[in-house]
Design a binder for these strands. Structure first.
Lengths: 192, 192
DNA sequence: CGCGATCCATACTCGTGCGTATGGTATCCG
DNA sequence: CGGATACCATACGCACGAGTATGGATCGCG
């Protein structure tokens, strides 16, 4: 049934473990990150793990740094490359709304803010995103003060949405209804 | 240092354990809910606990139900008693923003949505609040569709705010700045 | 007073998951 | 082709937290 489904016959590297860890975190949260479970999933045993990493903590650390690195650089750059500043916000909203998969790790880490290791990472990532958002609002015409507060509001709505949907499954919303919601969001959070 | 600071010399009841559990959940999350830790904090040992509850799971269940009961009934009733529908939303916003303490349990449970026991409770509570919010928006003049989406957006902002502040400590915002943020929120999320 | 019910302490068992020790197998390179 | 190095398996020790067993203390009440 759950025998080794992955025919990865090559030896493993540290990066393989980190990727598997991130996948597991996205699926079941940081708390589920256990070395023996990971090993089973990779078709090996703990003996392998402790060759690559000194401890479980080290794996978490490395995985988080790897995740932070990969980042959302593409999205940011693509949005900032758009000529019309007013068009950036709607595009950003729609894009994030329709590509939720990359945000699963962020959502999982959001629920693990009691682990001392994830706090600094999340603080850095969230801070960068907030600054990015604030900039777009300024470029869209909002005065600085206003732009900052609007960015706070928007980002909070994003974070809350992740929680209410991935984990809690509030009355499952239909696809069309979701699109309508996104458009409503654009209308009320975006300067005309 | 942390010796029994509570001079509660009377015997304990199940409710005492539930209250202590909720306090611990609010402070350190559901994951920190351990019977021996709780017992220490109450100045007794496990022997006491297992007289009142069959299992740790039972305590969690009872605590959650107790929390759901206490609820936010007062707030809802007071807001609905206000004569002018337009005045309700700003009042609700300001009130929630300035009395965050009661929301700490909700914030903690938000991060424990992987525990099967908390999901139904949070689903019910969130659903009730959402319906309440939707109603207020309708009474404030928004068409039904619009009211529902606005309630979704507002509630998501609320949830996101809890995450970003209790747990993550984004660049510590000052008191005045926070008030300005709340007013900004009211302006953009509330029908004129 | 005294006795039954209620509440609690002490001392265990048991499962789970991290980390270690040590030996085995595969791979690369001279 | 043989040995050094990289990778992995097996078998442990150990800590920690849930749950159990059993006896002791304390309260209510006739």
């Amino acid at each position: 049934m759950n025998a080794s489904a992955k025919p990865e016959r090559t030896r493993l590297s540290a990066e393989d473990w980190e990727d598997a860890a991130l996948k597991l975190i996205a699926d079941q949260g940081v708390g589920a990150l256990a070395v023996e479970a990971l090993a089973r999933q990779l078709g090996v045993t703990k003996g392998s793990f402790y060759w690559h990493f000194r401890t479980r903590e080290a794996l978490l650390q490395a995985s988080l740094e790897r995740w932070e690195q990969y980042g959302e650089r593409e999205v940011i750059e693509q949005i900032e490359a758009m000529p019309d500043p007013r068009a950036r916000l709607p595009e950003l909203f729609r894009r994030v709304a329709h590509e939720l998969a990359p945000h699963r790790v962020y959502a999982a880490l959001l629920k693990a803010l009691d682990h001392p290791q994830v706090v600094p990472v999340m603080a850095r990532v969230s801070q960068r995103r907030m600054e990015f958002l604030t900039n777009i609002y300024r470029e869209a015409g909002l005065p600085p003060e206003e732009a900052l507060n609007r960015a706070r509001l928007t980002y909070a709505a994003y974070v809350g949405f992740l929680q209410l949907n991935f984990t809690l499954g509030l009355p499952r919303i239909s696809h069309d209804e979701f699109d309508a919601y996104v458009e409503h969001m654009i209308r009320t959070l975006t300067p005309a």
